[in-house]
Simulated scan of single mutants.
Amino acid sequence: MLHQTFIRSALAALAIGAGTVSAQATEIVRAITFTPAQVSFAQNFQKYVDLVNERGAGVVQIQTIGGPETIPQARMGEAQQNGIADMFLLPAGLYLNIVPEGEAFAGSNRNPMDVRADGGIEMINEIFHEKGNAHVLAHVDGGAGFHLWLTEKPEITDSGEVDLTGIRLRSSPLYRAFLEELNATIVVQPAAEVYTSLERGVVDGAGYPVTGLRDYGWNKFLKYRLDPSFFQTDVLISMNLDAWNDLSDEAREILQQAAIEHEQSSYEANLALNESEKAAMAAEGIETIELTGAQAETFLTTAYDIAWARLKERDATHHDALKDVFFEPIE
């Protein structure tokens, strides 16, 4: 059970200036990010905040009031559902226990703009409204997936499959089943704890996007990166549904339009950042092991099959309709 009284008190202390601005009829949206402020995901989100605050002067303002130091990542889905804060920069994979259909974002191999154009966001919002008391504004920082980062070289079998037997990997619940399929020993822990785990040899690597990895300093210990990437980063800008509905039409329009623009600009920026970070890590000595051809196809098919099968097992109601929009068969 989330300690709502404690967290509300903490957020109130962080948002001391909000009352003054509200008195001037500006609507205040209190935001939480799933990473600390210095990590790339939170820094990218700040671009959205700045855009809204510029356009929304006198109408609506976003006030970022904390990150995982305020609400633990594992509790953020529940916090959003209960209205502990108004807006969240939060991966869908961190609250699949509440909205299992959030799997569609990571299980997607299409870009967020095409999914939106084909009605995917509208479709999935009906589900998020009902199950998560949440409204999705945008799928941001898309276009890149998760990589396996290792301190020792992985084994590739004669049949071309990756075998991680004996390797301990930090995982999140989102891709735990996939790493287990590759025979890895799994350690589930927050990203903030991984540096110490790598330093002490508790884990031999991690699954994580390129974005943010050097921000955490993990590159100091890593020697190998396994390509291709799997899944797609599933970071969402979303709001507590009650808070969204309480906003004026003008405020909602400003927030939504800026989110649509940020969805595309963050996608493009993420692609560029991935290339620059890849080059920087290669210069530091991290070797890329690239699966190609049938090996890559087997690797990716295994990953995506697990994601969609997990959704179907949890709740098959919307599985087929979502997969038709979010996923293109691998050829």
Score class of each variant (00 low, 15 high):
residue 203 V to H: 07
residue 116 R to I: 02
residue 261 E to Q: 02
residue 136 V to R: 00
residue 256 Q to L: 11
residue 130 E to S: 13
residue 65 I to C: 14
residue 306 I to K: 02
residue 243 A to P: 09
residue 100 P to T: 03
residue 152 E to C: 06
residue 296 A to Q: 06
residue 137 L to P: 14
residue 35 T to Q: 08
residue 231 F to P: 06
residue 319 H to S: 10
residue 37 A to L: 09
residue 113 M to G: 05
residue 6 F to I: 12
residue 240 N to K: 07
residue 165 T to K: 04
residue 129 H to R: 15
residue 131 K to F: 04
residue 262 H to K: 09
residue 24 Q to I: 13
residue 211 T to K: 10
residue 217 G to K: 10
residue 158 D to M: 11
residue 240 N to F: 09
residue 249 D to A: 13
residue 303 A to F: 12
residue 85 A to F: 08
residue 149 W to R: 10
residue 10 A to P: 07
residue 96 L to P: 01
residue 95 Y to Q: 05
residue 39 V to T: 05
residue 130 E to M: 05
residue 72 P to R: 01
residue 45 F to N: 07
residue 167 I to C: 01
residue 80 Q to A: 15
residue 140 V to G: 00
residue 295 Q to S: 14
residue 261 E to F: 00
residue 57 A to L: 12
residue 68 P to Y: 02
residue 98 I to D: 03
residue 121 I to N: 08
residue 154 P to R: 03
residue 221 F to D: 04
residue 290 E to Q: 03
residue 226 L to I: 10
residue 260 I to Q: 02
residue 192 A to C: 04
residue 116 R to K: 09
residue 176 R to L: 14
residue 204 D to S: 04
residue 331 E to F: 02
residue 299 F to K: 00
residue 158 D to P: 08
residue 165 T to L: 02
residue 187 V to H: 09
residue 97 N to P: 00
residue 40 S to A: 12
residue 80 Q to Y: 09
residue 251 A to S: 15
residue 294 A to D: 15
residue 26 T to P: 06
residue 164 L to Y: 02
residue 55 R to K: 15
residue 259 A to T: 08
residue 276 S to H: 12
residue 169 L to H: 11
residue 134 A to C: 15
residue 148 L to D: 05
residue 150 L to Y: 08
residue 228 P to V: 03
residue 196 T to Y: 12
residue 35 T to F: 07
residue 315 D to G: 00
residue 240 N to A: 09
residue 109 N to P: 05
residue 74 A to N: 08
residue 134 A to V: 13
residue 219 N to G: 15
residue 36 P to R: 04
residue 205 G to P: 09
residue 11 L to Y: 13
residue 33 T to R: 07
residue 330 I to L: 14
residue 236 L to T: 01
residue 272 A to P: 06
residue 196 T to C: 06
residue 211 T to S: 11
residue 4 Q to Y: 08
residue 10 A to S: 14
residue 117 A to W: 04
residue 174 L to F: 14
residue 16 I to D: 15
residue 100 P to W: 03
residue 149 W to S: 10
residue 139 H to K: 00
residue 101 E to G: 00
residue 299 F to A: 01
residue 331 E to T: 07
residue 172 S to H: 14
residue 286 I to W: 04
residue 46 Q to K: 14
residue 252 R to I: 04
residue 133 N to M: 15
residue 1 M to T: 03
residue 300 L to V: 03
residue 241 L to E: 11
residue 72 P to M: 00
residue 74 A to D: 07
